[in-house]
Structure formats: structure tokens, C-alpha cells
Design a protein around this nucleic acid. Structure first.
Lengths: 261, 261
DNA sequence: GGTTGACCCTGCCGTAGCGTCAACGTTTCT
DNA sequence: AGAAACGTTGACGCTACGGCAGGGTCAACC
């Protein structure tokens, strides 16, 4: 029996048979004078066993182990392990399908629809039209939402909710406009201090509290280092997007909030 | 923001970021004078979107398409397609776990336990001890069982069942022994014809009928070619394992059966 | 006896999504 | 000033083969 016969018999490609030889799964048979491999019944039996195990989902490495040890005990262990693994995979796929269903249930699949549903609602409520600063704000929110774990996401949404109420929204429009106007201004511009005071005055208390630790460098080292590093990165990320005057506004707001506690 | 900051922010490795650049998923940002990439908020947003889509299970190619087309219609299509694909995967995994459970339910996981449960029962019933010929027979049965589809497997088991009955078993032992004795005999040995006659006389009718077409070369071409080729392979496979005298026995048996119809 | 077609051989590249060096330059901390 | 921790490009590694290149072998047909 030559390689093509063997392959057809068991229902694999000749390439697969040679691959198994290469991996040492299937022993190389004797060669004929012309160099062709000559197979016997035994080879077909081994190959068929390999295929059955492979179709069950064992990796070729695992199959080699099973064939080598070859007394039921090990096979049983491997199969149990495999079953547990498959169960986990099923769960994982189920979870993904749930998230997919959530996404698909959202009627309006806009480009930014890859944020969580709650944050999507917040973004819909916040002012957006025409303000560069509002755009940055929205991007930052979407980013935090993407990166955070579910608990963090929920906290973010809670913190933002006060800003979506009608009177906060009305103020928000004006504040965004005044921030936009500082895009090309000097850090010493008189409007900077005034805007900082207004911002600090109208920032919801919880949101202010959440922002404060972000720039608190004086804390003792060694606790919450990772979170602090994250928070620092957020602030620096935002800072990099702002003009000098806008950045100055934020520094003043932060100083005010720190002083207030 | 440099590549390490960006990666930490979004929760991926720097290697991943560079990989996405290489694939054109994430645009290359401007470079500083030292050659370092300098990222902005916008890059982090894009990267985060890529990650969310990737975690949903989209391939990076699909993500590139979605980001390029980027008006919800396409995203929706891709997500629906993905969901269908995941559903199929879940089913496939479920089927594999079912087969696993069947295997694991078999108490005795011997090396040849990769055959179907029904065939395993047949193999347990058939004589095995010490006969080389019995061994070949068992290997051939296990192989056919491995390779056949479920219907074929059931048919095989049905064909073999008469041989597992007590009187057939008793005869089987003797026949195997007589075949073994022909291992080194001459094809012209007088025992050959006698054994062939005994075999033909005691072969169950259905099994004989099933074996017959395997060597029937006279049939018109064009119908059942694939099956015929398979059957031919089986016979040649068996033939290759037999000594000349044993092969002669089989030829005589076949001739007798053909003449009988 | 040349040609055709169906086989066989070895060996290398490609897949998806990065991980992991290597070999080198830059920044930052002490 | 030196070390540690960054950054750069490039190349190879992983699964389980598929596909191709560039050959050799063998049977049949004209």
C-alpha cells in the first residue's frame, strides 16, 4: 500500500500522513527501492486512531503522549481535561454571543457603538455639536469605558449622570464654548481664571472627588501604584490634547478642588 | 504619549500595537526626532475599538473592513455572520463533548477503545488469544469501523453479530488456528482447499454477500466507482498481510461464493 | 519509443496573532 | 557616570497542515 492508498483509505491527505511522520506520530514505514513508502495494515490502524483522537479535539502533541503511554489511564485523564476545556470554551462563546446580542439589539449601530450600552446613552445625552472640546471629552469617555472593567464602567456612568440633566446640559454647552475659545489664547489670559472658577463651582461633588486623586502626587508610595499610574496616564493624555490656556484652566480647577477638601 | 503608555492604557502589549501598525489597522502616528512614535488620544480610542471588536471574536481582517467602511451597516452584517459562526462552533463543541462522554462512559479504556462502542462489544466477543490471524482480523475490523460513516458502522456490526454466537465462536477458534498453520505453507498445500471449503460453508449468508462485490471486477463501470475503489483497497490491504497460502484460501473462498449465487 | 497523466519525493512559504529574542540607540533615575 | 528601563527594526516560533516548486517513477497509449 502506498501513501495515496493509505490516505484515501483513512480519509486524509497525503500531506497529512507525511506531516504525522515528521512529528513522529506515525512511524515511517519501510521504503521500496524507488524510495516510496510502503504501508501495511498496522499503519492504517494507527493512522485511523490518530484521526479519531484528533477529531475529538486532542492536539497532535497530546495524541503523541496518549499513543506513547498507551495504557488507558492517561487517555482517560487527557479526555477529562479536554472535556473541561471544551466546557470552558462553550461558556466563553456563550458570553461572546451575549455581548454580540447586546450590541445588535442597539438599534443605531454608529461608529462609536463599540462602547457599553450605558455609556452610549450618556454620550447620546451629552452635548456634541461643533465643539472641539466636547469631542475630546467624548473620546476620553469612550476610551475609559472601553478600557475599564464592568465595575469601573458602572462607576463612570454614575459619575457622568448628573451632567446629563437639563440644567447641567445647558451650562455644559456654554462651558464647552468658553473652553473652545481658549484654544489659541495665552495661559495668562484673564478668561482662564474666571472659567476655572465657574467649572470648579459647577462640577458635581462625586465627579470632583473622583478626579482629585488623579493629580495627588504627595501620597505615600507603595499603595495603589498601578491605579495611580493609570490615573496619571489619563491626566497626561488629556493634557496633551489641550492648548496651554486650556491646560492652565484644568490646573486651576484641580488646585481649587484640592483646597476645598 | 509613547508606545508603552498607549499599550498600558488600553491593556495590550507594545508588540500588539506595532503588529496593528504593520497590518494597517492603526495608523502610524508622527515620529519624534529620536524616532519614537508619539501617540494622541485619538490613537488610543481607535486602539480600544480594535480591542473590543477583537474580543468579540472578529478577525483582524474583519476589523479592518469594519473600520474602513465604518458606517454601521457593514458592522451589523459582520456581527450577524460572526454570531452564526459562533452558534455553529457551539454545536460542534457540543457534538464533540457528546462523543467524549460516550467514550468516557466505556468503563475499560483499553488502547483500542477508540472504536465505536458497538464494535468494541464485537471485538470483546471475538476470539483473540494468540492467533496472528485473529489479530489481523481485529485490526481490519477496527480500521473499517474507524473509517466508515455511522451507517456503515452499524452495517458492519450487524454483519459481524452472527460470528459472536457460541457455536460460531467455537468454530472460529479452530478456523483461526488452521489459518495460522498455513502461514509458512505452500499455496499448493492440500490443507488450503479443505480450509477454503470449510470457511465458505460456515460464512454467514449476509456476510458472504457483503464480501462478494469486493472482488467482482466484471460489473459495468460508472456506477459506485468510489465504493468499488474502496472495497478493492480493503481486499488488497488484507491480501498484503497474508501469506501466499492464506491468500490462496481467500481466493478459493471468493470463487466458491461467486459460483454459489 | 516518446508522450501523457498519475503518482511519489523533499523542502520551503503561508496561515492568526502575536511572544520572544537579538542587536542596537535613548531616556531616566540614582 | 553607569544602570535600568524604555524605544527602534527585524526575524523566528507556535498549530496543523495547504500549496507550490522542482524534481523522479511508473503504467498506459500512440
Amino acid at each position: 500500500m502506498r501513501i495515496g492508498d493509505l490516505a484515501a483509505l483513512v480519509g486524509v491527505s497525503t500531506r497529512t500522513v507525511r506531516h504525522y511522520h515528521h512529528l513522529g506520530l506515525l512511524p515511517e514505514p519501510v521504503r521500496l527501492a524507488n524510495g516510496y513508502r510502503e504501508y501495511r495494515l498496522r499503519d492504517a490502524v494507527i493512522l485511523a486512531r490518530i484521526r479519531r483522537l484528533a477529531e475529538l479535539g486532542l492536539s497532535l502533541d497530546e495524541i503523541r503522549d496518549v499513543l506513547a503511554a498507551d495504557r488507558g489511564r492517561e487517555l482517560r485523564e487527557v479526555l477529562l481535561e479536554l472535556d473541561a476545556d471544551l466546557a470552558k470554551q462553550q461558556e466563553a462563546i456563550g458570553a461572546r454571543r451575549d455581548r454580540l446580542a447586546t450590541l445588535l439589539a442597539e438599534a443605531d449601530l454608529r461608529p462609536d457603538s463599540t462602547v457599553s450600552p450605558d455609556m452610549a446613552a450618556v454620550l447620546r445625552a451629552l452635548p456634541a455639536e461643533g465643539s472641539r472640546f466636547a469631542e475630546i471629552d467624548r473620546e476620553l469617555l469612550a476610551l475609559v469605558d472601553s478600557v475599564a472593567d464592568p465595575a469601573g464602567r458602572a462607576r463612570m456612568v454614575d459619575l457622568m449622570r448628573p451632567l446629563t440633566e437639563p440644567e447641567a446640559l445647558a451650562r455644559g454647552h456654554a462651558l464647552y464654548r468658553r473652553l473652545d475659545e481658549l484654544a489659541d489664547a495665552d495661559p495668562g489670559d484673564p478668561r482662564v481664571a474666571v472659567l476655572a472658577a465657574d467649572l470648579a463651582a459647577h462640577l458635581p461633588a462625586e465627579l470632583a472627588a473622583a478626579m482629585l486623586p488623579d493629580t495627588d502626587h504627595a501620597r505615600p508610595r507603595g499603595d495603589g501604584r498601578a491605579e495611580e499610574a493609570d490615573a496619571m496616564r489619563w491626566m497626561k493624555t488629556l493634557d496633551a490634547e489641550l492648548s496651554p490656556a486650556q491646560a492652565e484652566v484644568f490646573r486651576l480647577v484641580m488646585a481649587t478642588l484640592r483646597g476645598r477638601t
